[in-house]
């Protein structure tokens, strides 16, 4: 079973991981983040939260009659992959795990698999 800090270390051990961050989806606050140079974690967390909210809103309209529940979201840029995983917690929630992956050195399928395993250990 993982704590918040150990969870971040686990995420960073995913092959190809460059940066990781834990975000509180309700307030858009960066709960914990790996310190990389030039990263504005607070703003990034707030903006990514908005992106997730907008995506949920868009999906709710594009899948009429369904209740939308996002498991993860992937954005690929010319430099790398950005993976966001939403994690239901017993308390508040959801907690979002964000990881930035190197385009060349990462294996997307493996990263998704590891992220799912880590979420399973962070929350019951």
């Amino acid at each position: 079973m993982l704590g918040i800090d150990t969870c971040l270390a686990e995420v960073m051990s995913i092959p190809g991981a460059l940066d990781a961050m834990l975000v509180d989806h309700t307030s858009g606050m960066a709960v914990a983040f790996s310190a990389a140079d030039g990263v504005d974690a607070d703003r990034s967390a707030a903006a990514l939260t908005e992106a997730l909210r907008a995506t949920t809103d868009g999906l709710a309209r594009s899948c009429p009659g369904e209740v939308v529940r996002i498991d993860d979201m992937l954005v690929t840029t010319d430099k790398g992959h950005h993976l966001l995983r939403l994690l239901e917690t017993v308390f508040e929630g959801p907690l979002v795990i964000y990881v930035r992956l190197d385009l060349e050195r990462s294996n997307l399928a493996l990263a998704r698999y590891r992220l799912r395993a880590i979420s399973g250990e962070l929350a019951t």
Binding site: I4, F91, E92
Partner: peptide, 12 residues
């Protein structure tokens, strides 16, 4: 609860 959940609960 897991340690992570308790931390998150207290944090929130």
């Amino acid at each position: 609860v897991t340690p992570g959940e308790l931390q998150y609960a207290v944090l929130g």
